[in-house]
Design a protein around this nucleic acid. Sequence first.
RNA 1: GCCGAGGUGGGGUAACGGCUAUCCUGUAGGACUGUGGAUCCUUCGAUCCGGGUUCAAUUCCCGGCCUUGGCCCCA
Length: 416
Amino acid sequence: MIEKPRGTRDFLPEEMNIRRIVEKKMRDAAERWGYVEIKTPTFEHLELFTLKSGESIIDEIYAFKDKGGRMLALRPEITAPVIRIYINKMQNRQKPLRLYYFDNCFRYERPQKGRFREFWQFGIELIGGRRDLANFEMIALSVDILRSIGLNNFDLHLGDVFLLKRSITRNNNDIDEEKQRKIFRLIDKKDYNTLNAFLDDERIDGEGLFALLDLKDLSTIDDIKKIFGEEEKEEIEDILKILDLLSIYDIHPILDFSIARGLDYYSGIVFEIYSRGLGAQKQICGGGEYELIELFGGKSENTRGFALGFDRIMEVVKEERKNDKRILVVSTEECRRHAITLSKELRKRFIVETDIMGRNLKAQLSYANSVGINFAIIIGRKEVEENRFTLKNLTSGEQFYLTIDRLIEMLQTFGL
RNA sequence: GCCGAGGUGGGGUAACGGCUAUCCUGUAGGACUGUGGAUCCUUCGAUCCGGGUUCAAUUCCCGGCCUUGGCCCCA
């Protein structure tokens, strides 16, 4: 027997039913904000992703050479492809561009709870807009989507990598990229002892950095402003504006300037959402402002977006299955042609099955019962001769003897 | 890549190193030729893969694969 590949999943009908319901709610929420769907290819040139994230990510990507010798990759995320499309085809459209997507992505990683090699992301990219307003919209939308699927048990962390970078570079001109990266890694791990030691060793002024990291609420915001210069003050003012607008939606982020994880291309506001009630992989949303357009050869424009981890969300969302009412047209062997004719007619409005097992009448009804069909329509010689149909409500056991018009009418009154 | 746990029909399970691998559920059919659910009978269907130890391996050992909790990583 052939097993499914490592890190992939099969979704049986019961689960797909629920996944589609949640997907639809997320789409609806994004569309209510004026976002429109965009679709990118399942695979792209590998370069698109290495340009964004460096050669080292090849280890974590499904990359391959096609028959023409091209280096391709299954998309590990969808932001870079969307920006590619923007540059190729949408640069001259009027801003803002509000785009959303829902698709599968692939990463070659060790699978564990909430982490798979094929997984689904629902995301948006917002291109253009004044920074404070656009960032507010992005964050409010992410929360609106989560709320619209009935999720409320999560924490929103808001950070700013611009301020974070400036906090170590503004008084330390000679600090190189590598050292910065090391510092960010330690911040992300919250390993402040090692961080302190490193800063001491390198004689890096960490006052601004630690002031930021300690900033949990707005009480020390004025002290922060004193430490930084004009440019940083403007950024802080922007954050305050965003927080104020978010409060309209009753969204109150936790300020968290330790958000720094490996996101070289993020440039300003960043945020992450964590679900309570998941294990190690509890982040269900991540996003922020980034600069990719110029890197990909386009004309500079400010951009931001986020991606929701659909599979992790499915772990915590509670959703009822949708149960459509189903009909089985049951007939004797000699009347099958009539059954198929009736089914053709009824399918214009209803969900209708017919027997293809060649079962007798009793076995057809037994099947209907065991798979949860709600109504059986019985056609035998008597029905055909009298041009009537027997409708049986399998829930109540009631039976009716009806003409075609009355049959359809009655099915409708039963809520089909 | 690292540390730990696990793997028996489709699902859930039993088997001190020893009989044709247990039972429940399920599948298909029958008892029942125009009326479902109950009952009974029959059928189908499994020891993850490969080595090793042994007279004998589902059981013990090693390796792999897969699942799973965590670490690394998470663009």
